[in-house]
């Protein structure tokens, strides 16, 4: 199986794999091209085509001008909402998960395995089982239809993943290291700060990427607990397609989709290795 690229069987492999790869790229290329075509041009032909004139203005309209339900500020406020929810929820859930993962992996205390088992069940419990309780909790504390409410939800729910990731990473820390630190009189926080945290960057990057992607892309909670100007960008995209169903604006809509997908795509491109590691770490459970 040496790389003789011109052997017939090798060429077949390259042909098949690149054909599938092209098919996989089509949706992305179509959206990029459409985001640069005018509505008239798309209406005359189809969604699939090369721009005759480059309509960069689609991005301006998508970012700051088009109207969703009476407000005409483009996708900008919703992108901001998503950022306001995603960034704090990612940071807080990762920090708490790191401490919790450290506690259950390196400190034994009564009931540690039990509570850790329950926490990981959160990976499997469908969101639908938590929708009504969250509604009531958010209403009772006055956080319904607020971004803070979404931060709280994503922080608490994210703990299942962040604790799992960190715990599985920290159990590999040699016990001798812990024992030596304790003999030196180091306590819970000092050991975390001095020994565990310096070893943590790889797992923290995986966790942050995982949390950011999931929270940014989340839709159900966004659409259930927020309305109008408070919605994250995923919910706004759906509202947008409903709002302009009468007068199709596929160029602008494609630009909006591109903008909304950009943060997670960037993270994927920049941190691909860690991204994949998170996927497989989540799968092994």
């Amino acid at each position: 199986m040496r790389d003789r690229i011109f052997a017939p069987s090798r060429m077949l492999i390259y042909l098949v794999v690149w054909l599938i790869a092209t098919a996989w790229l089509v949706p992305f290329v179509v959206v990029v091209l459409n985001s640069l075509r005018t509505a008239e041009e798309i209406a005359q032909t189809s969604m699939i085509g090369w721009p005759k004139q480059w309509a960069w203005s689609n991005y301006v309209t998508a970012w700051a001008e088009f109207c969703v339900a009476q407000t005409c500020a483009g996708i900008r406020p919703y992108m901001l909402n998503s950022a306001i929810v995603t960034i704090p929820a990612t940071i807080i859930s990762t920090m708490l998960g790191a401490v919790a993962g450290y506690a259950v992996s390196l400190w034994r205390f009564r009931g540690d395995q039990w509570i850790y088992g329950i926490v990981t069940l959160g990976i499997f419990l469908p969101q639908q089982m938590r929708l009504l309780p969250w509604t009531i909790v958010l209403r009772d504390v006055g956080l319904i239809n607020t971004l803070t409410g979404l931060v709280v939800i994503h922080t608490i729910q994210g703990l299942s993943f962040t604790t799992l990731f960190c715990r599985n990473y920290y159990v590999a820390i040699p016990p001798e290291l812990m024992r030596a630190a304790r003999i030196d009189g180091a306590g819970f926080f000092r050991i975390f700060w001095r020994i565990v945290l310096p070893l943590s960057p790889p797992i923290l990057i995986v966790t942050v990427i995982w949390q950011f992607t999931h929270i940014w892309n989340e839709f159900l909670y966004g659409v259930t607990f927020t309305t109008g100007q408070q919605q994250p960008v995923t919910a706004a995209l759906i509202a947008l397609s409903a709002a302009i169903a009468d007068i199709p604006q596929h160029g602008v809509q494609s630009a909006a989709v591109m903008i909304a997908a950009l943060p997670t795509l960037l993270i994927y491109v920049l941190g691909g290795r860690y991204f994949v590691r998170g996927l497989t770490a989540g799968a092994v459970k």
Partner: peptide
């Protein structure tokens, strides 16, 4: 290339495929 769709939200995926599969558009 085969993994990039995983970074997208299902809302984006669904919207894009609704265009491609729309008989009058795609």
């Amino acid at each position: 290339i085969f993994l990039y769709p995983i970074a997208l939200s299902f809302v984006v995926t669904g919207t894009v495929w609704s265009w491609l599969l729309n008989p009058g558009l795609g």
